[in-house]
C-alpha cells in the first residue's frame, strides 16, 4: 500500500521548475488593467504551450499566442494578477440570463449562436500548500494534489473552479472580482485573488475562442513560483 501511494504521488505531481513570477508587495492593486499602479510592476513573460489535438479531425492550431505577460501585486491580504496577451479578435458577448427553464409562457430568450466560443484565461494554484518542491500535475492536479482555478470567460465573467485531475473540473459558484479590456489586438485582464503566499506555484492558461478553444484545447504555461 505504501509503495502504491508513493507511485501515485510521483506520477501525479511535477517536480518544481526554477521558473518564477515577480511580484510587487506592500501596495494595493487595481482592478483596472490601465491603472497607474501597474506601470511600476515588473512584468514576467511566461512561455505558452499548445495542447495537442484530441482527434484526427481536429486541425492543429498554429502557436500564435507564444507568451503571456504577467504582473502580480500582493498586499492588503489580496493578490492581483494582471495578464496580457495578443489576440487579434475579441470573442466576447453579453448573454441574456435564462429565467425560464421549462414550460414557459410568452416569448423565450433566444440562443444567438450554437458554434461560438469565447476568449478566456485562468490562473491555476495548488489548493493546498506544496511540500518538497512537488507541484500538482499540470493536467488540473490529481486526487492527492487538488487545484484551484481562477477562471475568466469573456462572456460569463469570473468564477472559481476546483479540480483534482483531468476531467474533474467543477464550478464552485463562487465569483471573484475581475476586469478585462481588449484593445488594439490585445487582451489585458486583472484577476483579484485571495492572498497567495510567496513561493506558491502558479500556472496560466489562455483560450482563443476564435479557433474554438475550450476545455483542454488551450494555451498553457508550466508552473512558475510566485516570488
Amino acid at each position: 500500500m505504501r509503495s502504491l501511494l508513493g507511485f501515485a504521488f510521483v506520477i501525479g505531481a511535477a517536480v518544481a521548475a526554477e521558473l518564477t513570477v515577480g511580484a510587487r508587495s506592500g501596495v494595493t492593486g487595481d482592478l483596472n488593467p490601465a491603472g497607474a499602479v501597474w506601470q511600476a510592476v515588473e512584468a514576467s513573460k511566461l512561455a505558452l504551450h499548445r495542447t495537442p489535438p484530441q482527434y484526427a479531425t481536429e486541425p492543429p492550431s498554429a502557436l500564435e499566442i507564444a507568451s503571456v505577460e504577467v504582473k502580480v501585486i500582493r498586499g492588503a491580504g489580496k493578490t492581483w494578477v494582471r495578464l496580457a496577451w495578443p489576440d487579434p479578435s475579441a470573442e466576447t458577448a453579453s448573454l441574456d440570463k435564462p429565467k425560464k427553464m421549462w414550460q414557459s409562457e410568452g416569448l423565450v430568450r433566444q440562443s444567438a449562436a450554437t458554434n461560438r466560443f469565447f476568449d478566456g484565461c485562468a490562473v491555476m494554484l495548488p489548493a493546498q500548500p506544496v511540500a518538497n518542491d512537488l507541484f500538482p500535475s499540470l493536467q488540473m492536479g490529481d486526487a492527492l494534489h487538488p487545484v484551484l482555478i481562477y477562471y475568466y470567460d469573456a462572456a460569463r465573467g469570473a468564477e472559481v473552479m476546483e479540480a483534482a485531475g483531468r476531467g474533474t473540473t467543477k464550478r464552485t459558484g463562487r465569483k471573484f472580482p475581475a476586469r478585462a479590456t481588449w484593445a488594439g489586438g490585445n487582451w489585458t485582464i486583472v484577476l483579484e485573488l485571495p492572498e497567495v503566499a510567496a513561493g506558491t506555484p502558479l500556472s496560466v492558461a489562455v483560450w482563443n475562442g476564435g479557433q474554438q478553444d475550450r476545455d483542454g484545447r488551450k494555451y498553457f504555461s508550466v508552473w512558475h513560483r510566485l516570488q
Binding site: D96, P98, K99, K100, M101, W102, Q103, S104, V108, R109, Q110, S111, T114
Partner: peptide
C-alpha cells in the same frame, strides 16, 4: 413538453 425554455428556441 421539453424545449420551450430560454435558449431552446431553435
Amino acid at each position: 413538453m421539453w424545449t420551450d425554455g430560454d435558449g431552446m428556441d431553435y
